[in-house]
Design a protein around this nucleic acid. Structure first.
Lengths: 109, 109
DNA sequence: TCAATACCTCAAGAGTTATTGAAATATGAA
DNA sequence: TTCATATTTCAATAACTCTTGAGGTATTGA
C-alpha cells in the first residue's frame, strides 16, 4: 500500500456510518451482504447508503458484485490489513511502541 | 480508543502534509522537533503548518510543548498504537487475515 | 409488456476543510 | 523599550463532503 491508496482509505474510515458498514461487512464474512441488508443494519436511506458504499469501494476497502437484482458487498480484508501495515511501517517506521498494540489480546491467546 | 477518538485520528491521517508531519515526528524520536523545523521538512508555510499541526494535536496524534520561543511537537506513539488497535479489533473484529499484516517483516524479524 | 424490487444517480443546500497572506501574540536579546 | 524570532490566529476563498428527496436503471416475474 502506498500513500495515494492510504489517504482515501483513512478518509473513508473517518466517518461513523462507513465505520458501521465496515464492521458489519467484516462480520458478514466471505459471503458478504446485499446493499439492502447493510442499509437496514446501519439505518441509512438508499441514496445515503449508496453514497457511503461508493466511498468505501473507491477507497478499495469493499468490493461489489452484482448477483441478479442485488449487489453483494464484501469487506476487502487484504486491503484493511495493508492499511494497518501502512500505518505501522510507513507512518510509524515500524516503531516497537506502536507495534505493541498488535500483539494478541491476553484472553484470546 | 473509541470511535469518537478514532474518527478524528483517521481524518487527521487522510492528508498528505499531515502524513509527512507524522512520519517526520516519529523519526524525530522522544525529543520531538520544533514547529519551524517541521515546516522546513515538509515544505509548508507557517500558517499552513500551524493549521495541520493543530489538526494532529486535536486528534491526539501529536503533543505540543512550549520551550522558550519554540514549540516542540512530538508524535504520540501510544495513540498511534491505539489507533492501529482500533482498526484491528473494533473495525476488523481481530480477523486473522487482517492481523497477518502485523507480523514482523521477514528481513527484520 | 407491465409492475415490482433492488439499487444507483443527480441536483441542491448546508457544513467542513485547506490554502493564502496579513496581522497578532509570546519570548528573548540589545 | 525596541527589534527580531518563533509561532499562532484571522478572514477570505475555493474545493470538498454529507444529506435529502426525486428520479433513473437493471432485473425478475406475471
Amino acid at each position: 500500500m502506498n500513500e495515494s491508496q492510504a489517504i482515501p482509505a483513512f478518509s473513508a474510515l473517518a466517518q461513523e456510518t462507513r465505520l458501521q458498514i465496515i464492521r458489519f461487512l467484516v462480520r458478514s464474512g466471505p459471503n458478504g451482504s446485499p446493499a439492502g441488508k447493510v442499509g437496514e443494519e446501519v439505518g441509512a436511506s438508499s441514496s445515503r447508503l449508496s453514497f457511503h458504499l461508493n466511498v468505501l469501494e473507491q477507497a478499495g476497502l469493499v468490493t461489489a458484485t452484482r448477483v441478479s437484482r442485488t449487489i453483494i458487498y464484501r469487506a476487502d480484508l487484504q486491503r484493511l490489513g495493508a492499511l494497518v501495515g501502512f500505518l505501522l511501517e510507513d507512518c510509524c517506521s515500524g516503531h516497537p511502541t506502536v507495534r505493541k498494540c498488535c500483539e494478541m489480546p491476553p484472553s484470546k491467546g
